[in-house]
């Protein structure tokens, strides 16, 4: 995982609530090989017309927003299917932080594990930030993970919460398997007792 420390980058406003993972990446692209990159599938059916040309109205197709590395969304970003490809498509496009009023639960967990920072701000602050971005396409937002602070283009700063463990992992680029391996003795002792206590679960072996 690539460490996340401070991100000072252009941000794009996404004026939609309940953007589900199917909109972030339609199911038909979720079988593509991981190594070839998922950037082209991000918001595919919003970004592109049926003939494959760009949909001019979509925010990421507009000047100033194309190179956004931060998205400011609305309520319930990333609800629906558990597809982690949604997070990959955001990351591969270059987005490392999504600011929203709240997130679909699986997406939020996946994001934290893959190095995409989900920042929860209240809906009013999200609306305010989107307004600033609309007024000045290309405007930057600064996200400081260590300080847990987002600073908008107008200099107004907002604090945000993140589970301390996830923060440490993101700052250091550590993933879960690295952590779990530190507990292997506890795992093996637990498993031995579990297999004795619930032996019927292992009858078929």
């Amino acid at each position: 995982m690539e460490p996340f420390t401070v991100l000072d980058a252009a941000a794009a406003p996404l004026d939609m609530s309940n953007v589900d993972t199917g909109l972030i990446i339609p199911a038909r692209f979720t079988r593509k090989p991981r190594r070839s990159g998922y950037q082209d599938y991000l918001f595919h059916d919003l970004r592109f017309r049926k003939d494959g040309s760009e949909a001019p109205g979509f925010v990421l197709n507009r000047e100033g927003f194309r190179d956004a590395r931060i998205l400011v969304a609305d309520r319930n970003f990333g609800a629906g299917s558990s597809r982690e490809q949604a997070v990959w498509s955001l990351l591969d496009y270059g987005i490392r932080c999504v600011i929203a009023a709240d997130f679909g639960e699986i997406l939020e967990a996946n994001a934290l594990k893959c190095g995409l920072l989900p920042v929860r701000l209240d809906a009013e602050s999200c609306l305010h930030l989107r307004g600033l971005l609309h007024a000045e396409p290309g405007a930057r937002i600064r996200v400081d993970l260590a300080a847990q602070r987002v600073t908008g283009p107008d200099g107004v700063a907002y604090g945000f919460d993140i589970p301390p463990f996830r923060k440490t992992c993101l700052l250091g680029g550590l993933d879960d398997i690295d952590i779990t391996r530190q507990h292997d003795a506890a795992f093996l002792a637990f498993e031995t007792a579990y297999r004795q206590r619930y032996d019927w679960l292992f009858d078929a072996e």
Partner: peptide, 20 residues
């Protein structure tokens, strides 16, 4: 519990999962 690919990887490799 439904999870994403990173957690599936974790379960494959460790037969366990971190949850809150």
């Amino acid at each position: 519990i439904g999870v994403g690919a990173t957690d599936v990887l974790h379960v494959l490799a460790t037969q366990s999962i971190w949850q809150r």
